[in-house]
Design a binder for these strands. Structure first.
Lengths: 336, 336
DNA sequence: CTGTTAGCGCATTCAT
DNA sequence: ATGAATGCGCTAACAG
């Protein structure tokens, strides 16, 4: 009881050999005899020896750990990305430390600082909304300049000289819109949120592009919500005032709320009124009616980003600064 | 470009003072003169000096980091616990490393090992389903014996000599059942899942207790589902064959699926058929009709556990081995 | 095949 | 008030 972990030094004393002999034996060095090896390993196992990770990291100048900064952990999309990151990292022998920026630039800077002071070998970051909005990215520039491998995911910062993994947001929105058009919809609104984010702007562009191409674009049909959680009343108003036959919502919660309001107005879904949402979480799947949604393949995005980062850590020279795009796909369900 | 982080040694060379002077100056030691301090700090800032975390940890034998092992990160409940852990830890100056056991004993053992080899100062763990089921907990016993601060959360292992933070599952289920009874329900079924977990068994006990007390208990009304994701067909069968007026589901997804099946049978909710679920996630709130649910205050549980762990790290002697219970509450919505 | 030694970056005790 | 020296636990270059 109360026994601390045993060290190589103590092991060496017990075995009456030198520290380096123990270290080499434990690492299966060819320069150690088989019986010495066996003896060392036996005693190590007996005393339940575990190499101290911190000491190893200091010596090797590598931590076998990657840092992740996400803006929001209560968002299912990010959780799934995280899941993909964790899985890929685990498969490749890396640990993951996650920090949450809560969409705040200040916390993000703090997160980046604490992570990159030797704690991790590379960084995966989805910049906070505030970072994107204020274009304040000195902390990341500095990091990249110091030759720390960095990869951004989901949201990119063009000014940054680092690889990124993103969704095909523009295309995805265009396809979703096109899908509604091909189903015969003419009066399709766009419900947007988090307008400061580049991904959201891209989705709006995608919607515009499809609508314009079909000569259906009506700028007054683009709505932006500041507070999604309390958007129901506004949605109801909009649905009353405009005679829409479909809505593309750029946010998952918004799609569900739109459906609820449409039902309240006795609009038949999907017959008279169709809805397509984004980021295909549990709610889209379980809601009744189930919600058609753009699936961004979050897990794949996470795995890809982690894989690229680990490649970059292992092979810094071969790293190319390019954006990898994870294609999303439309999951058709009962709402369209 | 490409410049590595500067070290104290390099700083000392630049300033033409000794290493220890720099170290002391940076740490505001009283044995350093004010102007020397100022000069050192100025140059440190200029070169953007950041103390190496790994070296500090090795020297101080402390990492200011806590490790967390959760069984499943795609479960909203655990994400919320994690959120609480992260928040409290952040407030108290600690970082968090999270590992996911995927409900597997083997992965859990691996997680615990890699976390506790010097990487963290203490461990928060929710044992995997397999760990609870097989009662295989040598890895945790060993850890506790080695005087590493450990606290379990949500799921407890009684055989373990460590504090824990849990829900009042039995009471919560009893109250929820009682709530249904007081609304006039007589034929109340229990839909359960993950029967190996102690929390689930407690909930069943709570249900039994309330039903028995009101002379309504019917053992054939207790159902267990192995595969919640594909339980809809079975649920439909059960609803057809038994004339129930309410169901308590021990799992969030199960509650939603039950409502969908009930609607398919044209049961009026909540008039003729009531449902109460567990763990009050986004789905319970957004579903239509919204689902009454037992809220386990996951965030609070996480914060409490993290707080206790940090207390225990800072004050190992004063740690008492006791279970803290986070009281849950019933959120009444449209399904009951 | 085994041992001695130096050093990763930092804090700290002890001298000056 | 400042500096030299030691050690945290480990690896590896070098010596024997």
């Amino acid at each position: 009881m109360g026994k601390k972990n045993i060290t190589i030094k103590e092991l060496a004393d017990i075995l009456n050999v030198s520290i380096s002999t123990v270290s080499k034996a434990l690492n299966d060095s060819h320069e150690i005899g088989d019986k010495t090896k066996a003896k060392v390993k036996e005693v190590a196992a007996l005393y339940n020896y575990r190499p101290n990770f911190i000491a190893k990291s200091l010596k090797n100048q590598t931590t076998k750990t990657i840092g992740v900064v996400v803006p929001d952990i209560l968002n299912y999309f990010f959780v799934k990305v995280l899941y993909g990151i964790e899985k890929e990292s685990r498969d490749r022998g890396y640990k993951v430390i996650t920090c949450i920026s809560h969409e705040s630039l200040e916390i993000e800077v703090e997160n980046v600082t604490t992570l990159t002071n030797g704690r991790v070998d590379g960084l995966l970051i989805c910049p906070s909304e505030e970072t994107q909005q204020t274009k304040n990215n000195g902390h990341l520039k500095e990091l990249i300049d110091s030759s720390m491998p960095v990869i951004t995911f989901d949201r990119t910062i063009n000014a940054l000289q680092c690889p990124s993994v993103i969704s095909d947001d523009l295309e995805a929105a265009r396809n979703a819109t096109q899908h509604l058009i091909s189903k015969g919809c003419k009066s399709i609104a766009l419900f947007s949120a988090h307008g400061d984010l580049s991904v959201m702007q891209d989705r709006v562009k995608g919607y515009r592009s499809a609508m314009q191409e079909n000569h259906l674009l009506d700028e007054t049909h683009i709505f932006s919500f500041n507070d999604v959680a309390h958007a129901e009343a506004s949605i109801l108003e909009i649905l009353k005032e405009h005679s829409l036959d479909a809505v593309l919502t750029i946010d998952e919660l918004l799609s569900v709320k739109t459906i609820k309001m449409a039902q309240q107005l006795n609009l038949a879904i999907p017959k008279d009124f169709k809805v397509i949402g984004f980021s295909n979480g549990q709610i889209s799947q379980e809601f009744h009616p189930s919600v058609s949604s753009v699936d961004q393949h979050a897990e794949e995005m996470g795995a890809l980003a982690a894989g690229l980062l680990i490649d970059s850590i292992k092979n810094p020279e071969e790293t190319t600064i390019e954006s990898k795009v994870v294609k999303s796909s439309l999951v058709e369900r009962d709402s369209s």
